[in-house]
Structures are given as C-alpha cells and as structure tokens.
Amino acid sequence: MSEYKKSGVDLDSVKDIHKTIADMLSKTYRNTVIGAGHYAGVIDLDGKKIALHVDGVGTKTLLALKTGIIEPTGIDCVAMNVNDIACVGARPVALLDYLAMEKEDKTTITEVLKGIIKGSEEAHVEVVGGETAIMPSVVNGFDVSCSVMGKVERLITGSDIVPGDIVIGLPSNGIHSNGFSLVRRLIDQGKISLKDYAEEIMKPTAIYSDAVLEVLPKIHGAAHITGGAFTKLHRVTNHGIEIQMPDPPEIFKVIENSGVPHDEMYKVFNMGVGMVIFVSEEYGEDVKRELAKKNFNAIELGRVTNSHSEVRITTHKGSVLHL
C-alpha cells in the first residue's frame, strides 16, 4: 500500500470516480467545447469561447492554522485556478471565492483574503464576489476554494503535440497545494519537524498563467503538475513522453527521507517542476527566452516520443519510472 493511500488518499480510486463523474456530467452538455476531465471546461457563448474552473487548497489549510502562516493559502487558491485555465489557452478575467469556516475568525478571514487579493493582482484577474459560510460540525478549521472565468485566446487541448516536440519545465516554489494529507501524516508521526520546515512547507503555489499566455502562440500544449503529479501528462497527450528530472528542492528530499518510496514521490509531488509546456524544436529557444523574461528559469526536460501513452521519467537519482 502506498504511503499516500495510508494517509487517506487513494489516487486510483479517485481516478475511477472522476471518470464516473465526467460520464454523468456529459448528459448536460449543450454548448460545451471541452467537458469535464481536462484542466478546465470550455463553452461556446455566442461565438466566444469561455473557460470555467473551480478548485481549492485541500488539507494545506490545517497546517496553515497550526503554523499561523495563513495568507499563502489564498494565493494557492488563485494559482490552482488560473494555472489550470491557462492550460487550455484562457486568460483569467473574473474570480469568485468561497470560504467555509468552523467558527467566525476575523484573523483567518483577513489573511485568506489578503492572499486571494495578492494572487489575483499577480494573475491580473478581478475578484468580483464571494461567500463566507460558518459551518460548525461540518468544517474542521477552514476550507477555501475559488471559481474562475477566463477568455480563451487560443484553444489548446494537447491535440497539436507531436513526436519530437520539446518538453519544457517551469520550476515550482516547492510542494504547492498537493500531497498535504501525506505531509501531515509524516508530521503527525514525528518524521518531519513542522517547526523546522514550516516556511518551506507553506510556500504558495507559483502563478504560471501570465508566463504560459505569453508564449501561447508558440506552444502545442501545457500541463499543470498538481494532484497525481506527472500522471497529469496523460491528460494532454496520448503520445509517449520521455523526461529527465532535475535535482529537486530540499523539501522533497526531506519528505522522501521520512519514509516515502522514491517512485511514489513522482506520483504525488511536483518534485520541483510545477508546469510543463510542449513546444516544437523550432521555437524551443525562443520560448525559453520569453519565459526568462517572466522570471522563470525554464528547463528542457526531454521529448515527446512515438511510444503510445508511456510517460518515462528518469529521476534525479537515475531511476527510471513508467507512469
């Protein structure tokens, strides 16, 4: 049994549930261009393509309360949404937040909203409204989610990805907003010191939307590395992918040394790469230069191959994983 499953999250089961949900939702489609299962839903509204998405921060909120480092969760919530819609070529336009709380707490509300505003300013998206709900016995601490609407500037689904394309990675800030049930379990077991690593653990998710949109005319696809980590690459292409991962930030080594199997690390965490972009060799260097202007030191990870649906990862330790 995987360490993540022991902490209460079964990725295989979640994947099966997602397929069931997608099948159910498809019965409602009328103007849908992209339905459930991609990074965002896209509808055609009077000839204009609009992207819609909703996401939250997960159990990172529990560590926010323990550490008192709450503001980053608001940034996380914005990032998880704007990064995802950028993967279908959409620029974020408007955002709504939903904050559910166990009890009224002005400090928590203020800190979360400060983060949401900070993230929204970075992503150039307007916060047009939201809801705060006090729900004792339902919520433990607080939970926050956001919904975003974006205008599709150039629809990308991954269908343009072809063998020979270069795979480029954008660095992450660290753990971002996934795998926290596992991280919390390791902390509770005394295998990781929250006191020693609080600042590193609570770093907010990097916002990639502006950078992706800057190179949008030159790319074939994009994948935000979130829940399920590099299995997410299957979401954008059925072609094979072969990548060589760089040395990850120290926090991932701390987690692995706490008892998480090496291969599982690449199925749960981003391992230092938060966004993956697919581009033809012709534009590879141009894209890397443009990303550098957005303060992202883009890394060439590998290539798209002719192997059907195989993601082959050579890890920073030299192990080869097949996802």
Rank of each mutant, 00 (worst) to 15 (best):
V183W: 04
F180T: 04
G158L: 03
M149N: 09
T157L: 00
L170N: 08
K151M: 05
G169I: 13
G130E: 05
I156H: 09
S145M: 09
C146G: 01
I161W: 03
V183D: 07
S145N: 06
R184I: 13
C146E: 15
M135H: 03
V167Q: 15
M149K: 11
E153T: 00
I175P: 08
T132M: 13
G158P: 08
N178D: 09
S145I: 06
V138L: 13
I166S: 14
E153N: 09
V139C: 00
G169A: 05
R154D: 15
V162W: 01
S147L: 12
P171A: 06
L182R: 05
S172L: 08
I161A: 00
G129D: 03
S145W: 02
V128T: 02
I161K: 09
I175Y: 01
V128W: 00
S177P: 04
F142R: 09
V152N: 15
I187K: 02
V148P: 06
P171G: 10
I161Q: 08
V127R: 14
K151W: 05
R185C: 04
S137V: 14
S181I: 11
D160L: 08
T132Q: 12
N173E: 14
D143F: 04
M135D: 12
G174S: 09
D165P: 08
R185V: 02
I168A: 07
S172Q: 14
S159C: 04
I168E: 01
N173P: 02
T132E: 14
D165Y: 11
R185A: 09
V138Y: 15
V127T: 15
G141F: 14
N140E: 15
G174Y: 08
F142I: 04
N140I: 10
C146Q: 05
C146I: 02
S181F: 05
G129L: 00
A133G: 07
E153M: 05
F180A: 02
G179K: 10
V152A: 12
V183T: 11
D188C: 01
N173M: 07
T157G: 05
G130W: 00
N173D: 13
N178C: 01
I187T: 06
K151H: 07
I156A: 07
I175H: 08
D143K: 08
G150W: 10
V138M: 14
G174P: 07
G174I: 10
H176T: 11
M135A: 14
G164Y: 11
V148W: 09
S137F: 15
V139W: 12
G158K: 02
S147H: 07
H176M: 10
I134N: 06
K151P: 04
P171D: 15
S177N: 06
L170D: 12
G174Q: 07
V148C: 09
S181V: 05
P163S: 10
G164H: 12
V167S: 10
I175F: 03
D165E: 13
V152Y: 15
G141C: 08
I168W: 02
V128A: 00
S181K: 12
V148G: 08
I161Y: 08
V162F: 03
I187R: 05
I168T: 09
G164N: 13
N140C: 13
P136N: 06
P171C: 11
P171I: 13
I156C: 03
G141D: 11
I156P: 12
L155G: 12
